[in-house]
Design a protein around this nucleic acid. Structure first.
Lengths: 173, 173
DNA sequence: TTCATTTCTTAACAATTGTTATCGTTCAAC
DNA sequence: GTTGAACGATAACAATTGTTAAGAAATGAA
């Protein structure tokens, strides 16, 4: 966890979970923020019974349905573990308190939000500009850790295609 | 323009431009923010010589390559008028000043950024979940003004397809 | 009005993806 | 070790989209 957060260690609770554990279900309101110490999470949306993975998270990442966490609106997506995980958790209430009393953390969260906007935009542009095949090659270049650690059918939906199509792309040439 | 801004009217300059005027070129640094009084703008990215429209803006919207405006990095996209426009403009310098001296506007800009993140996310989810045909129908439902005012080939690239394909979708059934 | 540009439609063909189903492999739990 | 679930590859076919090209329709400027 980053420097500024260390002062508030006492507000965090350690949580150990097995793989495939749901931390937040789509439609529920996010009341907890998670910091990944070890393991890997994903966010996903339900589309007519099919799961579409929207993001992967690894060690050092902080994860919450920020929109829900901040506004108390139902979350647009679920959060789930892909591997056994060790997490540090903080409640919405404690976080709000911390947020009010630490300008540094407030500042950091704004930066975080801004980075997410840019990230989200880049990923979106990749969908507008590139074919699934190009997006897959881009993913290999920029996030090889995802290829290594995550089962392919999750990656397929993350790329906006079926697992069959991803298998074809991988074995093309 | 919204309430809080009225106090700073003197910092704005009125600008009248014809259609197809470039306000910011991709790769340049954004030094001006635009408020649309009348008319309509679009942002677009160059992809191997083909233009892909990423967003449309209408009366009441404020437009800048915020990422570039805020961080002095080259803009990822261009900004261009689709119709003759009347704009109110403010320079990066004046805006920074205003930003420093008005907590209300600082607050409003953070809200604005947050809304953009959510908006961007929703649009992105639509790409993951829906077919081009579904996205087009969604657009008709949620932004009929775009269908009315904007030429179809711009809308096609906005939906992530070619103008030929959009024409087919429109005349299907 | 006239002319040129822009915009939209349609056609034909190639390429890609989705869908459904089958099969082999791997992995974890018992 | 055995069993069942999860995972990935492949095949066959349907559906959709991209590409290129040609022409009709609408628009705007002189």
């Amino acid at each position: 966890m980053a420097y500024e957060w260390d002062t508030f260690r006492h507000l965090f609770k350690r949580l150990e979970i097995p793989a495939k554990t749901t931390l937040l279900a789509e439609g529920k309101i996010s009341r907890t923020m998670y910091f990944i110490e070890k393991g890997c999470l994903r966010t996903w949306v339900n589309n007519n019974g099919r799961e579409i993975t929207t993001q992967f998270f690894f060690e050092g990442d902080k994860v919450a349905s920020i929109e829900s966490f901040k506004t108390n609106q139902p979350s647009l997506y679920s959060i789930e573990s892909l591997e056994p995980c060790i997490l540090q958790t903080i409640t919405q209430k404690d976080f709000e308190n911390l947020f009010q009393h630490s300008p540094e953390i407030r500042e950091e969260m704004q930066e975080h939000l801004f980075r997410r906007l840019i990230q989200s935009q880049k990923r979106f542009f990749s969908f507008l500009k590139n074919t699934p095949q190009q997006r897959y090659q881009e993913l290999i270049q920029e996030h090889p850790e995802i290829i290594r650690r995550v089962p392919q059918h999750y990656i397929a939906s993350y790329l906006g295609i079926t697992s069959v199509s991803l298998s074809r792309i991988r074995n093309r040439r």
